[in-house]
Nucleic acid binder design. Sequence first.
DNA 1: TTTGTTGCAAAACGTTTGCAGCCTC
DNA 2: GAGGCTGCAAACGTTTTGCAACAAA
Lengths: 154, 154
Amino acid sequence: MKNVNEEKSGAVEKFKEFLRQKKMRQTSERVLIVEKIYSMNTFFSAQALHEDINKDIHVSLATIYSTLNLLLECNLIIRHNFNSQNILYEKFPSGANSYYRICIKCNKVKAFTDKKLKKSIDLRNSTAFSIGNHTLYLYGICKKCKEKMAKAKC
Amino acid sequence: MKNVNEEKSGAVEKFKEFLRQKKMRQTSERVLIVEKIYSMNTFFSAQALHEDINKDIHVSLATIYSTLNLLLECNLIIRHNFNSQNILYEKFPSGANSYYRICIKCNKVKAFTDKKLKKSIDLRNSTAFSIGNHTLYLYGICKKCKEKMAKAKC
DNA sequence: TTTGTTGCAAAACGTTTGCAGCCTC
DNA sequence: GAGGCTGCAAACGTTTTGCAACAAA
């Protein structure tokens, strides 16, 4: 198991390399934002990230968004749209994969891991398309909602 | 292979049943919207659907959105967020599953099918979570972009 | 007849943009 | 020192909401 700090410094390094390649500048704001994101373990909205960072130092929302777009571009974060209102971001370390169970009744989202499935999906790599990360969403009904529905029928 | 009209009438039926259960009204607008969606075979934006429908009869954008939300709720459509700007919808017939390859360089999206993978994912069904449909996104680099990158290095 | 639904316009929300000043390189 | 980046506020596109008129049950 990789530790959190290794993951974070790996992400910062990858981001800096990406900026170098694009001949873009390494600003303190950009680095701080990646570090913050890689210190979290939950989904987050752009707003929440903005508020969180601004407890420490002042960074404008425009900068938050511009950096989020760069991080999306270099695959260090992903963007979820679980339900129509909230758009949520999440760190996405290289080699990681995201699996989610989404209850279509209560909208709760639960992340899980599945090594076997991961292996099987990674096998889909081909010359026509080199797979980096992948994301799987399972839509269904959770135990609680199933029980509720059973009760309602009685 | 199920034919398109069967699929469409199945969707309409499922939607009507959903409305009945929620004690909501079966309006001509609602039915027309599902029918239209199930006649298409591509991703679509709310705007595009609105324009398309309004060639025939007048339906307001507010009604389009309210119906899209109902269809999301009863799992007859899904919402994609491939790149940060466009939000796209797609029909999602029961039993169908969506697999997508997304190039992180050129942002092109290609849908594909994979029966083996589908079987393997369906096996993840459990008492804790009953899986309905699922969606898999593979993020990677397509052949064209790989070739471009190889050329750039020379 | 009753009450939910529609259309319209305005509001809300997340995100982007233009510009002046600042800070990397 | 030059040009890219930031902050601010205004603009933008998508989605939601409030209200009066309408229509399904």
